[in-house]
Simulated scan of single mutants.
Amino acid sequence: MRLRNATAAASAIGACLLVAGCATDSDTETPITKDTTAASGTTAECDPSADHSAAVDEAFAALPSGYTWYRHDLTLTDPCAELSAQTARIDKPIVSSPEPVMFFSRGEFVGLATVCPMKLADQVRIDGTSATVTYSFPRPGETTGAGWSGREAVTYSVDPNTKAITNSGYSDEFRRSNPSCDPATGQPPTQTSAAPANCATDLALRLDVPTDAYSNGTETEGALDFTLTITNNGQSPCRVATNDIVLNVSGPTSNTCTPEVQAPDIAPGESIDIASKSGTWGTCVSDGLKSSGEYTLQAAVLVDGEKAAESDTGSFTAARS
């Protein structure tokens, strides 16, 4: 569907992979990059006509790995403001794609709001040296970015002299909503008894892959139509993040990919079905097919890079035109 402490460690480079994404109320996203720069606040130390591309390059270098970020001709429209912000987006965004917030002060990059890839719910609001960022996050049972009902408004403050970033704090609900990255620490969140760290070992995966040949193209033009069923055989709810699920394609060409759709909480004894038409699941597989022939597909859930559960394999035939 598989960022960085917003406090003093906000400028350290790190990466947490999960799918949260663009702030939109429909399943069809219009790729846009929000310009949330602040009002003018020039100082003698900053030349607004100078080339600030190095600061933009530094900001993009700090973005989470595992994504292809759309590196357009982004410029600081008010480079000498005490605080301004820009948002980044991935190259081919979907409804749940993250939009990291990059902070600048007097033409310099000062850090990311959080190193965790989060979805925005609204424009970033600048007030002097503070910025309010409103995030959208999933509550239990919510699967698609368009249907996420959780909202979290966090105020970040930047010291123009030290460039230190502080924040107003994060609610426990918001911190737990991202199973792979706690926005307060930039690390996986502390597990609770309701979601044990080893819950992935309680999952059973079943893959339903049609055996008919298909012309592998885009997701809506002949991509493989398959379904992954995940069942929780444990005693506690379990959530599997996007970056914990991998799809392995083997055949004339091989590929391992991570779809960009987040799974919901799965209650004990319950199952969820994830179809290839959800987000990038279909194209995740199709992109690995470079020639015609017989292929096999297998899904797996990873914990710390190791397989905790895996599905059976499904076979299919790809026919390239």
Rank of each mutant, 00 (worst) to 15 (best):
M1N: 03
R2W: 11
R2N: 14
G14C: 08
A20H: 08
A20L: 11
C22M: 14
A23Q: 06
D27T: 02
D27Y: 03
E29Q: 13
T30E: 10
D35K: 05
D35M: 01
A38D: 08
A38I: 07
A39N: 13
A44F: 08
E45S: 10
E45Y: 02
E45R: 05
E45V: 05
P48R: 08
A50I: 11
A55G: 13
D57E: 14
F60N: 09
A61C: 04
A61G: 12
A62I: 06
P64A: 11
G66E: 06
Y67L: 14
T77G: 00
C80I: 08
A81F: 03
A81W: 03
S84W: 01
S84T: 15
R89C: 14
S97N: 04
P98K: 02
E99C: 04
M102R: 12
G107I: 04
V110P: 05
A113I: 04
T114D: 09
M118F: 05
K119T: 08
D122L: 09
G128K: 13
S130F: 10
T134H: 07
P138D: 10
R139T: 10
R139Y: 09
T143G: 12
S149Q: 13
G150K: 07
E152L: 02
A153K: 04
T155N: 08
N161H: 08
T162M: 01
N167P: 01
E173K: 07
R175L: 07
R175M: 06
N178L: 10
N178Y: 06
P179V: 12
P188A: 10
T192Q: 08
S193A: 15
A195C: 14
P196F: 09
P196Q: 10
A197V: 13
C199G: 10
A200N: 11
T201C: 00
L205I: 13
L207E: 10
P210Q: 04
P210N: 02
S215W: 09
S215K: 11
T218Q: 12
T218S: 13
E221R: 10
A223H: 02
L224T: 05
D225S: 14
T227I: 12
T227H: 06
T229P: 10
T229K: 15
T229S: 15
N232M: 05
N233I: 08
G234F: 08
C238M: 11
A241T: 13
A241V: 12
A241Q: 13
A241C: 12
T242S: 15
D244G: 11
D244P: 03
L247D: 01
L247N: 10
N248M: 15
N248W: 02
S250Y: 01
S254A: 14
N255D: 12
D265M: 12
D265C: 00
G282F: 01
T283S: 14
T283M: 13
S286L: 02
S286I: 03
S291E: 15
G293K: 05
G293Q: 05
E294W: 01
T296R: 07
L297S: 01
A300I: 00
V301N: 02
K307G: 01
S315E: 00
A318M: 06
A319P: 00
